[in-house]
Design a protein around this nucleic acid. Structure first.
Lengths: 100, 100
DNA sequence: TTTGCTATCTATAACTA
DNA sequence: TTAGTTATAGATAGCAA
């Protein structure tokens, strides 16, 4: 999306990598926020830079998202096996069946 | 980013909201993955749709990210506040001008 | 209904100061 | 170095099946 096309692989030059990180991080957080608002979804993003700084966005509280996530996992008992690929796991549940 | 510009507010029409959710969710997950690869960052995204489906991406394991997050919170207690760059907290109304 | 198309809008790679 | 500019690649809103 810029003057040239880039391959999706680790950027070798550290300065360039840092600049790209800053720009894309902002972009990602903005998109996350837009998705939450537009679609009435609960969205959470956590980013650790390679220099160990943390950046985050959560449409509600971090804790509640993580708890909701854990509850979901507890019921479904799988999922967390995400590799480095995009693992989009849909857990269809129309409501919150406590004792299914 | 499409045939017309839209305001960042909840989409009223449920069909349209569902379609937009599907498209933007994919976009967000793709961006998250790109950021992780390009910039050697650890990135996690959790999304709950308004119909309670969960979608997620994590560049490493979900558990390790959440643990790292908790450790970070525990140690520093400041997290994102130090960087005036990205002040995306769970306070929606403050930072969205939505200029006409 | 949902998927695919594409004109248009947005993010950003490379450049400049 | 980092911050600002801009041309281009990429995302997507509305439409068509």
């Amino acid at each position: 999306m810029g003057r040239g096309k880039i391959a999706i692989k680790r950027i070798d030059d550290s300065t360039n990598r840092q600049v790209t990180f800053s720009k894309r991080r902002n972009g990602l957080l903005k998109k996350a926020k837009e998705l939450a608002i537009l679609c009435d979804a609960e969205v959470q993003v956590i980013i650790f830079s390679s220099t160990n700084k943390i950046y985050e966005y959560s449409s509600s509280s971090m804790t509640s998202v993580i708890q909701r996530y854990n509850r979901c996992k507890d019921e479904k008992d799988q999922v967390v096996n995400s590799t480095s690929d995009v693992k989009v796991r849909a857990v269809p549940s129309a409501s919150f069946p406590s004792g299914t």
